[in-house]
């Protein structure tokens, strides 16, 4: 068990060191998310619609698009120089590779989101600080679901010729439940609803996260098989 955790930690550490060296991923994701939010602000008229009604949707679209860039990048790096082949040759369980990539994707995405949230607060003039606790729970649940399925499918699409196009085509329809859930919950939180009053949505997103992590553990052996 200890060895298994060490293996996961080693993969996460490797991704961190690479990111510290290259500084490609986080800055690209952050700027892209910011651009998505800006484009939405220009394409809707904020003086007509209520900011707290359209805000959550725009925020999650930005997270989703920027996250897709992150996912694409994450397995591309592994494909370059045959790094993935090296990982697969390591006498480690394949699920350790999955969990390593899942955790590093989750951390990178969360860092990007922590930078985006204050800007979102300023641009939309919404007070996030008074609902910060529940908001972070919801953002975490949504991001975990995105990463659970995203890591599985990006490990799959990285072997395709048209990987940049295929990842969103495969991923987005499957993510619709979690997007609806996350947007709804974020909207309700901004309206001042307590977490206990939206148990059905929390249950839906949490079970989505658990089921897709489970499915990934069971099927990752068949994807990382060369």
């Amino acid at each position: 068990m200890n060895l298994y955790l060490n293996q996961i930690a080693a993969i996460v550490w490797k991704d961190f060191v690479t990111e510290l060296k290259t500084r490609e991923l986080l800055s690209a994701m952050f700027i892209f998310a910011l651009l998505v939010i800006l484009i939405f602000i220009f394409s809707i008229n904020l003086s007509i619609v209520k900011a707290s009604e359209v805000g959550p949707g725009i925020l999650w679209v930005a997270f989703l698009f920027a996250g897709t860039i992150g996912l694409n990048r994450s397995f591309m790096l592994e494909k370059e120089n045959g790094c993935l082949m090296g990982l697969m040759l390591v006498p480690a369980d394949r699920t350790a590779i999955y969990f390593g990539k899942l955790i590093s994707n989750l951390i990178f995405l969360s860092i990007m989101e922590l930078f985006i949230l204050p800007l979102f607060m300023i641009f939309f003039n919404i007070d996030l600080l008074s609902h910060l606790g529940p908001l972070l729970v919801v953002v975490f649940l949504g991001t975990l679901g995105f990463c659970a399925l995203g890591t599985l499918l990006s490990s799959l699409s990285s072997n395709l010729k048209t990987r940049e196009i295929m990842l969103p085509i495969l991923l987005y329809p499957l993510l619709i439940p979690i997007i609806i859930g996350a947007v709804r919950m974020t909207g309700q939180i901004l309206d001042g609803t307590e977490l206990f009053d939206m148990m059905k949505w929390i249950g839906l997103t949490a079970s989505f996260d658990i089921i897709y992590i489970g499915v990934s553990i069971m099927t990752i052996d068949h994807i990382l098989e060369e």
Binding site: L152, P177, L204, I211
Partner: peptide, 25 residues
């Protein structure tokens, strides 16, 4: 065959989630 099979499983398991999320929507 392997990739398609994984997607076939992942896709079908999505149906209950889609059902409830759009129903409550």
């Amino acid at each position: 065959a392997r990739y398609a099979a994984v997607l076939g499983i992942v896709g079908f398991l999505n149906i209950p989630f889609i059902h409830f999320s759009v129903l409550w929507w």
